[in-house]
Design a protein around this nucleic acid. Structure first.
Length: 264
DNA sequence: AACACGACCTGGTAGC
DNA sequence: TGCTACCAGGTCGTGT
């Protein structure tokens, strides 16, 4: 489900709903970390932050609940903490009776309790710049890309290069930038790389707006965000630009979609 | 060091 | 209708 835009939508919604809320008790229902239950109960939710695809719930006393939704996780507030779905992994009972629920059908999502310093330094070490912040500059991006022999798609998926891009938005960005996903980054022209930098920013900005809109109602995610995909999951369909058929190839164990006519 | 691949898990769905 | 096979918006560990 979530790449950066969807995670951002989750965070914005949580921010409104739980900032300042007191956690009465945290209950781990399925394969989670006991530390979350031990550390969260009795604390106040002070802030909701996002770093790449990671969600950070800042609690009182210097404790952070660190969550990664992976493929199928979701994190949202329900009116009654007792009325969670069968897929709930962790339920935070909030003062007043609401519930903050980590839900995941595939049990791939991760949640842990750490000190603020511990998680901050870990993420700073592992993640590249935030693509929607000042730290993501064309100079930095182009320099890093020019020194990488990774195929373009894998470079973009690598969280150490840019934090938050996943399979869909990496493919869409490369389509708009007209770059072959198999091409080594170091062999892409600097002009195209500068273009790609700007395209990543605009793709993600648009996708955040779509995700926020799609996620606006009560409860969990709507079916799909309305971000207009040009290539993702469109194998065999004609390219909207050149009419050649979009192809799907395996890359890094995942599906990559691209237009062999436009992307070179 | 860089890459490929399976593992982690379960659910949805296309195809027979 | 029911079964099967395959795919899934992510990451990590292992082996080459």
């Amino acid at each position: 489900m979530p790449e950066l835009p969807e995670v951002e939508a989750v965070c914005r919604k949580l921010r409104d709903a739980v900032t300042g809320a007191r956690i009465v008790e945290a209950r781990v229902l399925r394969c989670g970390t006991v530390r979350v239950a031990e550390q969260a109960s009795g604390r106040t939710l002070q802030a909701v932050e996002r770093r790449g695809k990671h969600i950070l719930l800042r609690l009182s006393g210097g404790v952070t609940i660190h969550t990664h939704l992976r493929m199928s996780g979701n994190l949202y507030v329900i009116p009654d903490h007792r009325l969670h779905s069968v897929y709930a992994r962790v339920v935070f009972e909030l003062l007043g009776g609401q519930g903050l629920v980590l839900e995941d059908k595939r049990v791939l999502a991760r949640m842990d309790a750490l000190s603020d310093e511990e998680i901050n330094s870990r993420l700073d070490r592992e993640l590249g710049p935030e693509p929607l912040s000042e730290s993501f500059t064309p100079e930095q991006f182009v320099a890093r890309a020019r020194s990488s022999r990774q195929p373009a798609k894998l470079f973009l998926m690598d969280q150490g290069n840019v934090a938050g891009l996943g399979n869909i938005y990496a493919a869409e960005s490369l389509f708009r930038a007209r770059i072959d996903p198999r091409k080594a980054m170091a062999r892409v022209s600097p002009a195209k790389l500068r273009g790609l930098h700007g395209i990543i920013v605009s793709v993600l900005s648009d996708a955040v707006e779509s995700a926020v809109a799609a996620y606006a109602g009560p409860g969990a995610f709507h079916s799909e965000e309305s971000f207009p995909v040009a290539v993702y999951d469109r194998e065999g369909e004609p390219c909207m630009t050149c009419r050649r058929r979009i192809v799907r190839i395996p890359q890094g164990g995942r599906s990559t979609y691209f237009c062999p006519g436009c992307q070179r």
